[in-house]
Simulated scan of single mutants.
Amino acid sequence: MPGIDECLLEAMTLPGARGAAIVDWTSGLALGAVGDSPNKDHEATAAETAEVARAAAEYRAFADADDSFDACGSHGSYGSLGAADGTDGADREGLPVEDLMLSTRNGFHVIRFVETTFDSSVFLYLWLDRHTGNLALARIRLRDLSERLVLV
């Protein structure tokens, strides 16, 4: 099972990978980063992508119709969501959002949420070249990496 550095290096082997990071979306801090950054600053990119991830994770508009939220409209943490029947939702997993994809004229930005056994707020971020990157392959590989990633 790869740690942060190994995970990032493996992400960079994807065709068209320009940069990758593991980011805490609560604080906006990069836990690790490799390659280039769209704005030439990994910390600024981490903070900016964290804003996007936080919005997707917390707002009702991105939830499936059968996902339930508390009265504030959010689940409050990355852990299990409460179920509509009043149970604690222990049989449900994580956020309603698995990953986010943004496309620009020159690239793709992929954010993959990492589910952990503890109350995590981490995601994998990958910046791909639009002309040489393979978005479908990137999503599959990031899903695999997020499932194998070991955070200590």
Rank of each mutant, 00 (worst) to 15 (best):
V97A: 02
G3Q: 04
A44Y: 06
I4E: 03
L126Q: 03
L142C: 05
L135E: 08
R60C: 07
V52P: 04
D88V: 13
S121M: 05
G82C: 12
R143C: 08
A44I: 08
A21R: 07
S37Q: 02
V122G: 02
G16Q: 06
D36R: 03
S120Y: 03
S80E: 09
D66G: 06
R92E: 13
F108V: 05
V150K: 14
E93S: 15
E93Y: 06
D24M: 09
A65L: 15
V97L: 01
L128Q: 00
L95D: 06
V122T: 12
D70G: 14
L9Y: 13
A90R: 13
E43L: 12
A71C: 02
D36L: 09
G107L: 09
E58C: 11
Y78M: 10
A50K: 02
P15F: 14
S121D: 10
S37R: 01
A84N: 10
F62P: 03
D41A: 08
L126Y: 10
D70A: 11
A20G: 04
F108L: 09
I111T: 08
M12V: 11
R130V: 04
L29Q: 11
F108I: 04
S37F: 08
L145G: 00
C7V: 01
S120D: 13
I140N: 15
D144Y: 08
R112E: 15
F123M: 09
L142S: 01
D67N: 10
F69E: 09
V150H: 15
A83H: 15
L151R: 06
D67Y: 06
F108Y: 14
A20N: 00
G107E: 10
D70H: 12
D144A: 15
R139N: 09
A84P: 03
H42T: 02
H109I: 13
G19L: 01
A56W: 00
